[in-house]
């Protein structure tokens, strides 16, 4: 069974790993690069717990053969915090008690990041649509939606403040 060297930029850092034909992006992240944030839930693309960003767009990493993404950029939940300081979405999840068991949380957060990158001021319904591929079996969707809306608000406020300071 042929092994292949796959080069990827993960959270801004160049990485290389050996992939077997059946190595998925999820498996490579967890077992070869030691990034345990993305979870293996259904391995069917249905639960979203393995969601990461591939070249900036959200994907279910359990369905991506690693051999197909040589040269790509991958962003995972581990890359969001700045040292010990959580980013807006992570902090809003903590503040709003939007995690219960936590299994779905990394996927939820990456779907939220993808949404906010495209749409900084989403409605609750747009948030619902954006996380419709992420299953929370604790069923705590309401605080998750609130946390994403709150993160969006904080991010807009900060952008507004920065703009004011820049024009002062």
């Amino acid at each position: 069974m042929p092994l292949r060297i796959v080069n990827v930029k993960v959270n801004g850092v160049d990485q290389a790993f050996m992939a077997k034909p059946d190595t998925t992006l999820l498996l490579a992240l967890r077992e070869q690069l030691g990034l345990m944030g993305a979870k293996r839930g259904c391995a069917q693309g249905a639960c979203g717990s393995c969601t990461v960003l591939l070249d900036g767009a959200p994907v279910v990493s359990c369905l991506v053969p690693a051999a197909t993404i040589d040269g790509a950029a991958v962003a995972t939940v581990e890359g969001l915090a700045d040292g010990q300081e959580l980013n807006d979405v992570q902090q809003a999840f903590v503040d709003g008690f939007a995690t219960q068991c936590g299994f779905c949380t990394p996927g939820m957060i990456m779907s939220a990041e993808a949404l906010l990158a495209r749409n900084p001021d989403p409605t609750a319904d747009e948030v619902n649509e954006a996380i419709s591929g992420n299953v929370c079996r604790c069923t705590g969707y309401a605080p998750i939606v609130s946390a994403i809306l709150e993160a969006a608000r904080r991010r807009r406020d900060r952008a507004g403040t920065a703009e004011q300071e820049a024009t002062r």
Binding site: T24, A43, Q44, G45, V60, V64
Partner: peptide, 21 residues
């Protein structure tokens, strides 16, 4: 994208299979 084929390969024993991306 593999979203139909990979779920099958992830879950079931399949005969030796080569994919073309």
């Amino acid at each position: 994208g593999g979203t139909s084929v990979l779920p099958w390969l992830n879950d079931y024993a399949s005969p030796p299979t080569e994919l073309v991306s």
